[in-house]
Design a protein around this nucleic acid. Sequence first.
DNA 1: AGACCAAATATGGTCAGACCATACATCCTG
DNA 2: CAGGATGTATGGTCTGACCATATTTGGTCT
Lengths: 273, 273
Amino acid sequence: MTTDERRRPDARPRAFEEVLARSEERIGADGLTVGDRLPGERQLAEQLGVGRSSVREALRVLETLGVVASQAGRGPDAGAVLTSRPGNALTDLLRLHLGLATLSMREVIDTRLMIEQWAAARAATANATANAAAPARTAAQTAAQTTEAQAAEAQAAEARTAEAETATARMAEAVAAMDAARDPAEFVKHDIAFHLALAEAAGNRLIVAVMRALRDALRRYAVDAVVRLGDTGGLQDDHRRIHRAIEDGDSVAAAAAVAEHLARAYPDSGPDS
Amino acid sequence: MTTDERRRPDARPRAFEEVLARSEERIGADGLTVGDRLPGERQLAEQLGVGRSSVREALRVLETLGVVASQAGRGPDAGAVLTSRPGNALTDLLRLHLGLATLSMREVIDTRLMIEQWAAARAATANATANAAAPARTAAQTAAQTTEAQAAEAQAAEARTAEAETATARMAEAVAAMDAARDPAEFVKHDIAFHLALAEAAGNRLIVAVMRALRDALRRYAVDAVVRLGDTGGLQDDHRRIHRAIEDGDSVAAAAAVAEHLARAYPDSGPDS
DNA sequence: AGACCAAATATGGTCAGACCATACATCCTG
DNA sequence: CAGGATGTATGGTCTGACCATATTTGGTCT
Protein backbone atom coordinates (compact mmCIF):
# COMPACT_ATOMS: atom_id res chain seq x y z
CA MET A 1 0.00 0.00 0.00
CA THR A 2 3.07 2.25 0.26
CA THR A 3 5.42 3.42 -2.44
CA ASP A 4 6.61 -0.01 -3.55
CA GLU A 5 10.07 1.35 -4.20
CA ARG A 6 11.78 -1.97 -4.00
CA ARG A 7 15.03 -0.60 -5.33
CA ARG A 8 17.06 2.32 -4.02
CA PRO A 9 14.69 3.04 -1.17
CA ASP A 10 16.80 5.55 0.74
CA ALA A 11 20.17 5.38 -0.92
CA ARG A 12 22.00 8.62 -1.31
CA PRO A 13 21.38 10.07 -4.74
CA ARG A 14 23.77 9.21 -7.49
CA ALA A 15 25.90 11.95 -8.99
CA PHE A 16 23.98 12.10 -12.25
CA GLU A 17 20.73 12.50 -10.33
CA GLU A 18 22.19 15.52 -8.63
CA VAL A 19 23.10 16.92 -12.03
CA LEU A 20 19.59 16.20 -13.22
CA ALA A 21 18.02 17.99 -10.29
CA ARG A 22 20.24 21.02 -10.60
CA SER A 23 19.69 21.25 -14.31
CA GLU A 24 15.93 21.14 -13.92
CA GLU A 25 16.15 23.71 -11.16
CA ARG A 26 18.14 25.90 -13.45
CA ILE A 27 15.71 25.55 -16.32
CA GLY A 28 12.89 26.66 -14.10
CA ALA A 29 14.74 29.46 -12.29
CA ASP A 30 16.65 30.99 -15.17
CA GLY A 31 13.60 30.85 -17.36
CA LEU A 32 15.38 28.88 -20.03
CA THR A 33 13.24 27.96 -22.97
CA VAL A 34 13.46 25.91 -26.11
CA GLY A 35 16.51 26.89 -28.13
CA ASP A 36 18.65 27.99 -25.21
CA ARG A 37 21.90 26.20 -24.55
CA LEU A 38 23.17 24.46 -21.44
CA PRO A 39 26.82 24.89 -20.43
CA GLY A 40 29.29 22.49 -21.95
CA GLU A 41 29.83 19.09 -20.36
CA ARG A 42 33.23 19.99 -18.95
CA GLN A 43 32.04 23.28 -17.56
CA LEU A 44 28.94 21.73 -16.04
CA ALA A 45 31.05 19.04 -14.41
CA GLU A 46 33.28 21.62 -12.80
CA GLN A 47 30.36 23.77 -11.66
CA LEU A 48 28.61 20.87 -9.97
CA GLY A 49 31.72 19.18 -8.67
CA VAL A 50 31.18 15.89 -10.46
CA GLY A 51 32.95 13.98 -13.17
CA ARG A 52 32.18 14.52 -16.78
CA SER A 53 30.78 11.03 -17.15
CA SER A 54 28.11 11.78 -14.58
CA VAL A 55 27.16 14.90 -16.48
CA ARG A 56 26.94 12.86 -19.63
CA GLU A 57 24.64 10.31 -18.01
CA ALA A 58 22.34 13.10 -16.89
CA LEU A 59 22.31 14.60 -20.36
CA ARG A 60 21.51 11.19 -21.76
CA VAL A 61 18.46 11.04 -19.52
CA LEU A 62 17.33 14.49 -20.61
CA GLU A 63 17.87 13.53 -24.20
CA THR A 64 15.81 10.38 -23.72
CA LEU A 65 12.99 12.45 -22.33
CA GLY A 66 13.16 14.77 -25.33
CA VAL A 67 14.28 17.82 -23.41
CA VAL A 68 17.74 18.37 -24.86
CA ALA A 69 19.54 17.50 -28.05
CA SER A 70 23.31 17.45 -28.29
CA GLN A 71 25.40 18.42 -31.25
CA ALA A 72 29.15 18.37 -31.52
CA GLY A 73 31.23 21.06 -33.12
CA ARG A 74 31.23 24.73 -32.51
CA GLY A 75 28.88 27.62 -32.99
CA PRO A 76 25.39 28.58 -31.92
CA ASP A 77 23.88 25.17 -32.66
CA ALA A 78 26.53 23.13 -30.86
CA GLY A 79 26.29 21.81 -27.35
CA ALA A 80 23.27 20.67 -25.40
CA VAL A 81 20.31 22.67 -26.66
CA LEU A 82 16.92 22.64 -24.99
CA THR A 83 14.30 21.14 -27.24
CA SER A 84 10.84 19.79 -26.81
CA ARG A 85 10.28 16.46 -28.44
CA PRO A 86 8.30 14.28 -26.06
CA GLY A 87 7.24 12.05 -28.92
CA ASN A 88 10.30 9.86 -29.18
CA ALA A 89 10.26 9.12 -25.48
CA LEU A 90 6.66 8.00 -25.63
CA THR A 91 7.32 5.87 -28.67
CA ASP A 92 10.30 4.16 -27.07
CA LEU A 93 8.35 3.68 -23.87
CA LEU A 94 5.49 1.95 -25.64
CA ARG A 95 7.71 -0.19 -27.83
CA LEU A 96 9.84 -1.46 -24.96
CA HIS A 97 6.99 -2.18 -22.64
CA LEU A 98 5.05 -3.92 -25.36
CA GLY A 99 8.17 -6.04 -25.89
CA LEU A 100 8.24 -6.91 -22.21
CA ALA A 101 4.54 -7.79 -22.30
CA THR A 102 3.83 -5.16 -19.68
CA LEU A 103 1.25 -3.81 -22.06
CA SER A 104 -0.99 -5.70 -24.40
CA MET A 105 -2.12 -4.72 -27.85
CA ARG A 106 -5.66 -4.65 -26.56
CA GLU A 107 -4.75 -1.93 -24.10
CA VAL A 108 -3.02 0.12 -26.75
CA ILE A 109 -5.88 -0.19 -29.19
CA ASP A 110 -8.46 0.64 -26.55
CA THR A 111 -6.47 3.73 -25.68
CA ARG A 112 -6.37 4.71 -29.30
CA LEU A 113 -10.13 4.38 -29.54
CA MET A 114 -10.54 6.58 -26.49
CA ILE A 115 -8.29 9.27 -27.87
CA GLU A 116 -9.73 9.34 -31.34
CA GLN A 117 -13.30 9.49 -30.19
CA TRP A 118 -12.47 12.32 -27.87
CA ALA A 119 -10.42 14.16 -30.49
CA ALA A 120 -13.10 13.84 -33.13
CA ALA A 121 -15.80 15.12 -30.83
CA ARG A 122 -13.55 17.90 -29.62
CA ALA A 123 -12.54 18.97 -33.12
CA ALA A 124 -16.14 19.01 -34.25
CA THR A 125 -17.18 21.15 -31.31
CA ALA A 126 -14.33 23.55 -31.89
CA ASN A 127 -15.28 23.82 -35.52
CA ALA A 128 -18.91 24.51 -34.64
CA THR A 129 -18.02 27.36 -32.31
CA ALA A 130 -15.47 28.72 -34.77
CA ASN A 131 -18.06 28.75 -37.52
CA ALA A 132 -20.50 30.54 -35.27
CA ALA A 133 -17.91 33.02 -34.07
CA ALA A 134 -16.43 33.89 -37.44
CA PRO A 135 -19.09 36.42 -38.49
CA ALA A 136 -18.83 38.12 -35.12
CA ARG A 137 -15.08 38.29 -35.09
CA THR A 138 -14.76 41.81 -36.44
CA ALA A 139 -17.23 43.10 -33.92
CA ALA A 140 -15.34 41.46 -31.12
CA GLN A 141 -12.11 43.09 -32.17
CA THR A 142 -13.66 46.55 -32.02
CA ALA A 143 -14.66 45.98 -28.42
CA ALA A 144 -12.08 47.06 -25.88
CA GLN A 145 -9.67 44.37 -24.78
CA THR A 146 -9.05 45.32 -21.21
CA THR A 147 -5.99 43.28 -20.22
CA GLU A 148 -2.90 42.00 -21.89
CA ALA A 149 -3.76 38.53 -20.72
CA GLN A 150 -7.08 38.71 -22.52
CA ALA A 151 -5.39 39.84 -25.69
CA ALA A 152 -2.84 37.08 -25.46
CA GLU A 153 -5.52 34.51 -24.83
CA ALA A 154 -7.55 35.76 -27.79
CA GLN A 155 -4.48 35.54 -29.97
CA ALA A 156 -3.73 32.05 -28.74
CA ALA A 157 -7.31 31.01 -29.39
CA GLU A 158 -7.11 32.36 -32.90
CA ALA A 159 -3.86 30.50 -33.46
CA ARG A 160 -5.50 27.30 -32.26
CA THR A 161 -8.42 27.87 -34.60
CA ALA A 162 -6.08 28.42 -37.53
CA GLU A 163 -4.12 25.31 -36.64
CA ALA A 164 -7.31 23.30 -36.40
CA GLU A 165 -8.30 24.49 -39.85
CA THR A 166 -5.04 23.41 -41.42
CA ALA A 167 -5.40 20.13 -39.56
CA THR A 168 -8.78 19.41 -41.10
CA ALA A 169 -7.32 20.37 -44.47
CA ARG A 170 -4.55 17.84 -43.92
CA MET A 171 -7.17 15.22 -43.16
CA ALA A 172 -8.71 15.76 -46.59
CA GLU A 173 -5.30 15.60 -48.22
CA ALA A 174 -4.56 12.34 -46.46
CA VAL A 175 -7.81 10.82 -47.70
CA ALA A 176 -6.87 11.72 -51.26
CA ALA A 177 -3.40 10.27 -50.78
CA MET A 178 -4.90 7.02 -49.49
CA ASP A 179 -7.04 6.83 -52.60
CA ALA A 180 -3.87 7.03 -54.65
CA ALA A 181 -1.91 4.55 -52.54
CA ARG A 182 -0.59 1.53 -54.41
CA ASP A 183 0.14 -0.85 -51.55
CA PRO A 184 -0.86 -1.38 -47.92
CA ALA A 185 2.28 0.21 -46.49
CA GLU A 186 1.66 3.40 -48.41
CA PHE A 187 -1.99 3.37 -47.45
CA VAL A 188 -1.10 3.03 -43.78
CA LYS A 189 1.41 5.85 -44.04
CA HIS A 190 -1.30 8.25 -45.10
CA ASP A 191 -3.78 6.65 -42.75
CA ILE A 192 -1.46 7.57 -39.91
CA ALA A 193 -1.25 11.09 -41.27
CA PHE A 194 -5.04 11.27 -41.33
CA HIS A 195 -5.48 10.14 -37.75
CA LEU A 196 -2.64 12.32 -36.57
CA ALA A 197 -4.27 15.32 -38.20
CA LEU A 198 -7.46 14.33 -36.44
CA ALA A 199 -5.67 14.50 -33.11
CA GLU A 200 -4.13 17.83 -34.06
CA ALA A 201 -7.52 19.21 -34.93
CA ALA A 202 -8.47 18.81 -31.29
CA GLY A 203 -5.74 21.27 -30.34
CA ASN A 204 -4.04 19.36 -27.53
CA ARG A 205 -0.32 18.74 -27.91
CA LEU A 206 -0.22 16.11 -25.19
CA ILE A 207 -2.88 14.11 -26.98
CA VAL A 208 -1.04 14.52 -30.26
CA ALA A 209 2.18 13.22 -28.73
CA VAL A 210 0.48 10.19 -27.24
CA MET A 211 -1.37 9.53 -30.46
CA ARG A 212 1.82 9.65 -32.46
CA ALA A 213 3.42 7.11 -30.14
CA LEU A 214 0.42 4.83 -30.34
CA ARG A 215 0.38 4.87 -34.11
CA ASP A 216 4.09 4.20 -34.32
CA ALA A 217 3.61 1.22 -32.05
CA LEU A 218 0.69 -0.03 -34.13
CA ARG A 219 2.20 0.53 -37.56
CA ARG A 220 2.89 -3.11 -38.37
CA TYR A 221 -0.39 -4.13 -36.85
CA ALA A 222 -2.20 -1.63 -39.06
CA VAL A 223 -0.55 -2.92 -42.21
CA ASP A 224 -1.66 -6.42 -41.34
CA ALA A 225 -5.18 -5.18 -40.78
CA VAL A 226 -5.27 -3.54 -44.21
CA VAL A 227 -3.96 -6.69 -45.86
CA ARG A 228 -6.54 -8.78 -44.03
CA LEU A 229 -9.39 -6.52 -45.09
CA GLY A 230 -8.26 -6.47 -48.70
CA ASP A 231 -10.65 -3.74 -49.70
CA THR A 232 -9.96 -0.27 -48.33
CA GLY A 233 -13.19 1.18 -49.60
CA GLY A 234 -14.97 0.80 -46.29
CA LEU A 235 -12.12 2.45 -44.44
CA GLN A 236 -12.16 5.36 -46.83
CA ASP A 237 -15.90 5.76 -46.43
CA ASP A 238 -15.28 5.98 -42.70
CA HIS A 239 -12.54 8.54 -43.17
CA ARG A 240 -14.81 10.74 -45.27
CA ARG A 241 -17.61 10.48 -42.77
CA ILE A 242 -15.29 11.45 -39.93
CA HIS A 243 -13.95 14.40 -41.86
CA ARG A 244 -17.41 15.58 -42.87
CA ALA A 245 -18.78 15.32 -39.35
CA ILE A 246 -15.93 17.44 -38.02
CA GLU A 247 -16.37 20.07 -40.68
CA ASP A 248 -20.09 20.15 -39.96
CA GLY A 249 -19.40 20.55 -36.27
CA ASP A 250 -21.40 17.44 -35.40
CA SER A 251 -19.51 16.00 -32.46
CA VAL A 252 -21.85 13.08 -31.86
CA ALA A 253 -21.65 11.91 -35.46
CA ALA A 254 -17.87 12.36 -35.43
CA ALA A 255 -17.40 10.18 -32.36
CA ALA A 256 -19.75 7.54 -33.72
CA ALA A 257 -17.94 7.46 -37.04
CA VAL A 258 -14.62 6.96 -35.32
CA ALA A 259 -15.99 4.12 -33.21
CA GLU A 260 -17.33 2.37 -36.28
CA HIS A 261 -14.06 2.91 -38.11
CA LEU A 262 -11.93 1.32 -35.41
CA ALA A 263 -14.40 -1.52 -34.98
CA ARG A 264 -13.94 -2.23 -38.67
CA ALA A 265 -10.16 -2.05 -38.50
CA TYR A 266 -9.76 -4.11 -35.31
CA PRO A 267 -12.85 -6.31 -35.15
CA ASP A 268 -11.40 -8.60 -32.49
CA SER A 269 -10.71 -5.87 -29.97
CA GLY A 270 -14.11 -4.87 -28.77
CA PRO A 271 -14.74 -3.82 -25.18
CA ASP A 272 -15.70 -7.38 -24.25
CA SER A 273 -13.17 -9.35 -26.24
CA MET B 1 6.23 17.53 -44.10
CA THR B 2 9.04 15.04 -43.64
CA THR B 3 10.59 13.77 -40.49
CA ASP B 4 11.76 17.13 -39.15
CA GLU B 5 14.85 15.50 -37.71
CA ARG B 6 16.83 18.66 -37.43
CA ARG B 7 19.52 17.02 -35.38
CA ARG B 8 21.55 13.92 -36.20
CA PRO B 9 19.86 13.34 -39.53
CA ASP B 10 22.16 10.67 -40.92
CA ALA B 11 25.05 10.58 -38.52
CA ARG B 12 26.45 7.19 -37.72
CA PRO B 13 24.89 5.88 -34.54
CA ARG B 14 26.62 6.55 -31.30
CA ALA B 15 28.07 3.64 -29.36
CA PHE B 16 25.43 3.70 -26.66
CA GLU B 17 22.70 3.58 -29.31
CA GLU B 18 24.24 0.42 -30.63
CA VAL B 19 24.19 -1.03 -27.13
CA LEU B 20 20.57 0.02 -26.83
CA ALA B 21 19.60 -1.65 -30.07
CA ARG B 22 21.42 -4.87 -29.29
CA SER B 23 19.95 -5.01 -25.80
CA GLU B 24 16.44 -4.57 -27.09
CA GLU B 25 17.08 -7.19 -29.75
CA ARG B 26 18.26 -9.51 -27.07
CA ILE B 27 15.25 -8.92 -24.87
CA GLY B 28 12.96 -9.80 -27.75
CA ALA B 29 14.95 -12.75 -29.06
CA ASP B 30 15.97 -14.44 -25.82
CA GLY B 31 12.49 -14.01 -24.44
CA LEU B 32 13.74 -12.18 -21.39
CA THR B 33 11.03 -11.04 -19.05
CA VAL B 34 10.67 -9.00 -15.92
CA GLY B 35 13.02 -10.20 -13.24
CA ASP B 36 15.71 -11.52 -15.57
CA ARG B 37 19.18 -10.03 -15.40
CA LEU B 38 21.29 -8.44 -18.08
CA PRO B 39 25.03 -9.20 -18.19
CA GLY B 40 27.26 -7.02 -16.08
CA GLU B 41 28.47 -3.70 -17.44
CA ARG B 42 32.01 -4.91 -18.00
CA GLN B 43 30.90 -8.11 -19.68
CA LEU B 44 28.42 -6.31 -21.89
CA ALA B 45 31.09 -3.83 -22.93
CA GLU B 46 33.42 -6.62 -23.97
CA GLN B 47 30.68 -8.51 -25.82
CA LEU B 48 29.65 -5.48 -27.83
CA GLY B 49 33.11 -4.09 -28.34
CA VAL B 50 32.46 -0.74 -26.71
CA GLY B 51 33.68 1.01 -23.61
CA ARG B 52 32.00 0.59 -20.31
CA SER B 53 30.91 4.21 -20.26
CA SER B 54 28.86 3.66 -23.40
CA VAL B 55 27.20 0.67 -21.82
CA ARG B 56 26.40 2.75 -18.79
CA GLU B 57 24.79 5.48 -20.90
CA ALA B 58 22.59 2.90 -22.57
CA LEU B 59 21.60 1.44 -19.22
CA ARG B 60 20.78 4.93 -18.02
CA VAL B 61 18.38 5.32 -20.93
CA LEU B 62 16.74 2.00 -20.19
CA GLU B 63 16.46 2.94 -16.57
CA THR B 64 14.86 6.25 -17.50
CA LEU B 65 12.28 4.42 -19.55
CA GLY B 66 11.52 2.13 -16.64
CA VAL B 67 12.81 -1.04 -18.24
CA VAL B 68 15.75 -1.88 -15.99
CA ALA B 69 16.80 -1.12 -12.45
CA SER B 70 20.39 -1.40 -11.31
CA GLN B 71 21.60 -2.54 -7.97
CA ALA B 72 25.18 -2.82 -6.78
CA GLY B 73 26.58 -5.65 -4.77
CA ARG B 74 26.45 -9.32 -5.42
CA GLY B 75 23.82 -11.98 -5.60
CA PRO B 76 20.64 -12.64 -7.52
CA ASP B 77 19.25 -9.14 -7.05
CA ALA B 78 22.39 -7.31 -8.11
CA GLY B 79 23.13 -6.00 -11.55
CA ALA B 80 20.77 -4.63 -14.17
CA VAL B 81 17.42 -6.35 -13.69
CA LEU B 82 14.56 -6.05 -16.13
CA THR B 83 11.60 -4.29 -14.59
CA SER B 84 8.48 -2.64 -15.82
CA ARG B 85 7.81 0.73 -14.33
CA PRO B 86 6.70 3.07 -17.09
CA GLY B 87 5.16 5.40 -14.57
CA ASN B 88 8.24 7.33 -13.54
CA ALA B 89 9.17 8.03 -17.12
CA LEU B 90 5.76 9.48 -17.85
CA THR B 91 5.84 11.57 -14.71
CA ASP B 92 9.25 13.00 -15.52
CA LEU B 93 8.20 13.61 -19.08
CA LEU B 94 5.17 15.62 -18.06
CA ARG B 95 6.95 17.57 -15.37
CA LEU B 96 9.84 18.60 -17.61
CA HIS B 97 7.71 19.55 -20.56
CA LEU B 98 5.33 21.50 -18.37
CA GLY B 99 8.39 23.34 -17.07
CA LEU B 100 9.44 24.14 -20.61
CA ALA B 101 5.95 25.38 -21.41
CA THR B 102 5.67 22.79 -24.16
CA LEU B 103 2.48 21.70 -22.50
CA SER B 104 -0.09 23.83 -20.77
CA MET B 105 -2.14 23.00 -17.72
CA ARG B 106 -5.22 23.25 -19.87
CA GLU B 107 -3.98 20.42 -22.05
CA VAL B 108 -3.16 18.25 -19.07
CA ILE B 109 -6.51 18.85 -17.43
CA ASP B 110 -8.39 18.21 -20.65
CA THR B 111 -6.54 14.95 -21.02
CA ARG B 112 -7.44 14.00 -17.51
CA LEU B 113 -11.10 14.69 -18.21
CA MET B 114 -10.93 12.52 -21.29
CA ILE B 115 -9.35 9.63 -19.42
CA GLU B 116 -11.62 9.74 -16.43
CA GLN B 117 -14.80 9.89 -18.44
CA TRP B 118 -13.65 6.97 -20.51
CA ALA B 119 -12.50 4.99 -17.48
CA ALA B 120 -15.72 5.59 -15.58
CA ALA B 121 -17.87 4.52 -18.51
CA ARG B 122 -15.66 1.53 -19.13
CA ALA B 123 -15.65 0.44 -15.50
CA ALA B 124 -19.40 0.74 -15.31
CA THR B 125 -19.86 -1.32 -18.45
CA ALA B 126 -17.48 -3.99 -17.19
CA ASN B 127 -19.36 -4.12 -13.92
CA ALA B 128 -22.68 -4.45 -15.69
CA THR B 129 -21.53 -7.40 -17.76
CA ALA B 130 -19.85 -8.98 -14.74
CA ASN B 131 -23.05 -8.71 -12.75
CA ALA B 132 -25.02 -10.24 -15.58
CA ALA B 133 -22.47 -13.01 -16.10
CA ALA B 134 -22.05 -13.98 -12.48
CA PRO B 135 -25.18 -16.15 -12.19
CA ALA B 136 -24.32 -17.91 -15.44
CA ARG B 137 -20.71 -18.55 -14.54
CA THR B 138 -21.17 -22.06 -13.22
CA ALA B 139 -23.08 -23.07 -16.31
CA ALA B 140 -20.36 -21.68 -18.51
CA GLN B 141 -17.71 -23.65 -16.69
CA THR B 142 -19.54 -26.91 -17.25
CA ALA B 143 -19.54 -26.28 -20.96
CA ALA B 144 -16.53 -27.63 -22.79
CA GLN B 145 -13.63 -25.21 -23.18
CA THR B 146 -12.27 -26.23 -26.52
CA THR B 147 -8.86 -24.57 -26.67
CA GLU B 148 -6.14 -23.60 -24.28
CA ALA B 149 -6.32 -20.06 -25.58
CA GLN B 150 -9.95 -19.87 -24.61
CA ALA B 151 -9.21 -21.12 -21.15
CA ALA B 152 -6.38 -18.65 -20.74
CA GLU B 153 -8.55 -15.81 -21.95
CA ALA B 154 -11.32 -16.81 -19.57
CA GLN B 155 -8.84 -16.87 -16.73
CA ALA B 156 -7.47 -13.48 -17.70
CA ALA B 157 -10.96 -12.07 -17.93
CA GLU B 158 -11.73 -13.38 -14.47
CA ALA B 159 -8.54 -11.84 -13.14
CA ARG B 160 -9.52 -8.52 -14.65
CA THR B 161 -12.93 -8.75 -13.10
CA ALA B 162 -11.46 -9.49 -9.70
CA GLU B 163 -9.04 -6.60 -10.05
CA ALA B 164 -11.86 -4.31 -11.05
CA GLU B 165 -13.78 -5.34 -7.95
CA THR B 166 -10.92 -4.56 -5.63
CA ALA B 167 -10.50 -1.27 -7.48
CA THR B 168 -14.07 -0.22 -6.84
CA ALA B 169 -13.61 -1.26 -3.23
CA ARG B 170 -10.57 1.01 -3.03
CA MET B 171 -12.67 3.84 -4.40
CA ALA B 172 -15.06 3.49 -1.49
CA GLU B 173 -12.16 3.37 0.97
CA ALA B 174 -10.71 6.53 -0.53
CA VAL B 175 -14.02 8.34 -0.14
CA ALA B 176 -14.09 7.42 3.53
CA ALA B 177 -10.49 8.56 3.95
CA MET B 178 -11.32 11.88 2.36
CA ASP B 179 -14.16 12.31 4.83
CA ALA B 180 -11.63 11.87 7.61
CA ALA B 181 -8.98 14.13 6.06
CA ARG B 182 -7.91 17.04 8.25
CA ASP B 183 -6.25 19.30 5.69
CA PRO B 184 -6.28 19.86 1.92
CA ALA B 185 -3.04 17.98 1.32
CA GLU B 186 -4.40 14.88 2.99
CA PHE B 187 -7.67 15.24 1.15
CA VAL B 188 -5.87 15.43 -2.17
CA LYS B 189 -3.77 12.40 -1.29
CA HIS B 190 -6.86 10.26 -0.98
CA ASP B 191 -8.51 12.05 -3.88
CA ILE B 192 -5.63 10.88 -6.05
CA ALA B 193 -6.10 7.37 -4.71
CA PHE B 194 -9.78 7.55 -5.61
CA HIS B 195 -9.20 8.64 -9.17
CA LEU B 196 -6.37 6.19 -9.62
CA ALA B 197 -8.62 3.38 -8.48
CA LEU B 198 -11.17 4.63 -10.97
CA ALA B 199 -8.62 4.25 -13.76
CA GLU B 200 -7.68 0.81 -12.48
CA ALA B 201 -11.29 -0.25 -12.50
CA ALA B 202 -11.25 0.20 -16.25
CA GLY B 203 -8.62 -2.52 -16.51
CA ASN B 204 -6.10 -0.82 -18.79
CA ARG B 205 -2.55 -0.54 -17.49
CA LEU B 206 -1.53 2.05 -20.07
CA ILE B 207 -4.35 4.29 -18.97
CA VAL B 208 -3.43 3.78 -15.35
CA ALA B 209 0.17 4.75 -16.00
CA VAL B 210 -0.83 7.90 -17.84
CA MET B 211 -3.35 8.78 -15.17
CA ARG B 212 -0.77 8.39 -12.45
CA ALA B 213 1.57 10.74 -14.26
CA LEU B 214 -1.18 13.29 -14.80
CA ARG B 215 -2.16 13.29 -11.17
CA ASP B 216 1.44 13.64 -10.03
CA ALA B 217 1.81 16.63 -12.30
CA LEU B 218 -1.42 18.15 -11.02
CA ARG B 219 -0.88 17.52 -7.32
CA ARG B 220 -0.08 21.09 -6.34
CA TYR B 221 -2.77 22.38 -8.64
CA ALA B 222 -5.30 20.08 -6.98
CA VAL B 223 -4.40 21.27 -3.49
CA ASP B 224 -4.91 24.85 -4.60
CA ALA B 225 -8.27 23.92 -6.04
CA VAL B 226 -9.39 22.37 -2.75
CA VAL B 227 -8.25 25.40 -0.81
CA ARG B 228 -10.08 27.68 -3.21
CA LEU B 229 -13.30 25.71 -2.92
CA GLY B 230 -13.13 25.64 0.86
CA ASP B 231 -15.94 23.14 1.20
CA THR B 232 -15.25 19.61 0.01
CA GLY B 233 -18.82 18.46 0.43
CA GLY B 234 -19.64 18.95 -3.22
CA LEU B 235 -16.58 17.03 -4.31
CA GLN B 236 -17.50 14.16 -2.01
CA ASP B 237 -21.05 14.10 -3.35
CA ASP B 238 -19.52 13.77 -6.80
CA HIS B 239 -17.24 10.98 -5.68
CA ARG B 240 -20.15 9.04 -4.23
CA ARG B 241 -22.20 9.51 -7.37
CA ILE B 242 -19.32 8.28 -9.52
CA HIS B 243 -18.80 5.24 -7.36
CA ARG B 244 -22.48 4.40 -7.25
CA ALA B 245 -22.90 4.75 -11.02
CA ILE B 246 -20.01 2.34 -11.60
CA GLU B 247 -21.36 -0.20 -9.14
CA ASP B 248 -24.76 0.06 -10.79
CA GLY B 249 -23.19 -0.46 -14.19
CA ASP B 250 -24.63 2.81 -15.51
CA SER B 251 -21.93 4.04 -17.87
CA VAL B 252 -23.77 7.14 -19.00
CA ALA B 253 -24.36 8.35 -15.47
CA ALA B 254 -20.76 7.54 -14.55
CA ALA B 255 -19.35 9.64 -17.39
CA ALA B 256 -21.69 12.49 -16.62
CA ALA B 257 -20.78 12.45 -12.95
CA VAL B 258 -17.10 12.61 -13.80
CA ALA B 259 -17.64 15.54 -16.15
CA GLU B 260 -19.54 17.45 -13.50
CA HIS B 261 -16.91 16.64 -10.92
CA LEU B 262 -14.03 17.97 -12.97
CA ALA B 263 -16.03 21.03 -13.99
CA ARG B 264 -16.46 21.76 -10.30
CA ALA B 265 -12.79 21.22 -9.51
CA TYR B 266 -11.42 23.20 -12.47
CA PRO B 267 -14.15 25.68 -13.40
CA ASP B 268 -11.86 27.79 -15.57
CA SER B 269 -10.81 24.96 -17.85
CA GLY B 270 -13.89 24.25 -19.88
CA PRO B 271 -13.70 23.17 -23.51
CA ASP B 272 -13.92 26.77 -24.68
CA SER B 273 -11.79 28.52 -22.11
C1' DA C 1 28.00 -29.56 13.94
C1' DG C 2 26.83 -25.12 14.27
C1' DA C 3 27.38 -20.17 14.78
C1' DC C 4 29.82 -16.43 13.89
C1' DC C 5 33.19 -13.46 11.94
C1' DA C 6 36.68 -12.19 8.28
C1' DA C 7 38.31 -12.15 3.72
C1' DA C 8 37.46 -12.57 -1.15
C1' DT C 9 34.76 -11.19 -4.95
C1' DA C 10 31.32 -9.43 -8.14
C1' DT C 11 28.72 -5.66 -9.06
C1' DG C 12 27.53 -0.77 -9.89
C1' DG C 13 29.26 4.31 -9.05
C1' DT C 14 32.64 7.73 -9.94
C1' DC C 15 36.47 10.14 -11.50
C1' DA C 16 40.58 11.63 -14.28
C1' DG C 17 42.83 11.82 -18.38
C1' DA C 18 43.61 11.02 -22.95
C1' DC C 19 42.40 10.97 -27.69
C1' DC C 20 39.23 11.33 -31.78
C1' DA C 21 35.55 13.62 -34.78
C1' DT C 22 33.10 17.55 -35.91
C1' DA C 23 32.14 22.12 -37.20
C1' DC C 24 32.55 26.82 -36.62
C1' DA C 25 36.03 30.80 -35.88
C1' DT C 26 40.05 32.99 -37.00
C1' DC C 27 43.85 34.24 -39.45
C1' DC C 28 46.86 34.24 -43.16
C1' DT C 29 47.80 34.35 -47.87
C1' DG C 30 47.39 35.51 -52.71
C1' DC D 1 38.46 40.62 -50.76
C1' DA D 2 38.15 35.53 -51.55
C1' DG D 3 39.57 31.30 -50.16
C1' DG D 4 42.02 28.05 -47.91
C1' DA D 5 44.91 26.64 -43.66
C1' DT D 6 44.90 26.56 -38.91
C1' DG D 7 42.92 27.01 -34.31
C1' DT D 8 39.61 25.74 -30.97
C1' DA D 9 35.42 24.55 -28.49
C1' DT D 10 32.32 20.99 -28.39
C1' DG D 11 30.53 16.22 -27.96
C1' DG D 12 31.94 10.98 -28.39
C1' DT D 13 34.69 7.28 -26.74
C1' DC D 14 37.91 4.49 -24.41
C1' DT D 15 41.02 3.09 -20.60
C1' DG D 16 42.24 2.43 -16.10
C1' DA D 17 41.89 3.21 -11.59
C1' DC D 18 39.53 3.45 -7.29
C1' DC D 19 35.42 3.45 -4.12
C1' DA D 20 30.91 1.54 -2.13
C1' DT D 21 27.97 -2.21 -1.48
C1' DA D 22 26.40 -6.72 -0.72
C1' DT D 23 26.77 -11.45 -1.31
C1' DT D 24 29.64 -15.56 -1.14
C1' DT D 25 33.10 -18.14 0.73
C1' DG D 26 35.91 -20.05 4.07
C1' DG D 27 37.95 -20.27 8.35
C1' DT D 28 37.73 -20.26 13.38
C1' DC D 29 35.92 -20.78 17.79
C1' DT D 30 32.56 -22.89 20.70
